[in-house]
């Protein structure tokens, strides 16, 4: 079953010149994402589900092997989770 995620209430973001800037309001820390991370972030915020996000990524980057995309996506999500910029959600 695909994992579901949500952006916590205390995380705000904006895309600046093609790169997302995230702010964790609780800690006051800013985080910058590169263009690939920015796209993953936008898709995650839209779909809130790992499987659907990965499907979109594979469709958007046909030149990249799905396994490579999946690996990068897992690393990205793990990093966001560890920094409290994303949380797992039930249902």
């Amino acid at each position: 079953m695909s994992e579901r995620f949500r952006v916590p209430d205390d995380v705000v973001s904006e895309v600046l010149e093609g790169e997302a800037v995230l702010l964790h309001l609780r800690t006051g820390k800013y985080f910058g994402l590169n263009p690939s991370g920015t796209r993953m972030w936008a898709l995650l915020a839209e779909h809130r589900e790992a499987e659907a996000t990965l499907r979109c990524l594979c469709a958007e980057f046909p030149g990249v092997a799905p396994e490579r995309l999946k690996d990068d996506f897992v690393v990205f999500v793990t990093e966001l989770l560890s920094r409290g910029l994303l949380v797992r959600s039930a249902g």
Partner: peptide, 8 residues
């Protein structure tokens, strides 16, 4: 400055 908001 561009205001930050909740991702849509």
């Amino acid at each position: 400055f561009i205001p930050l908001g909740r991702p849509s």
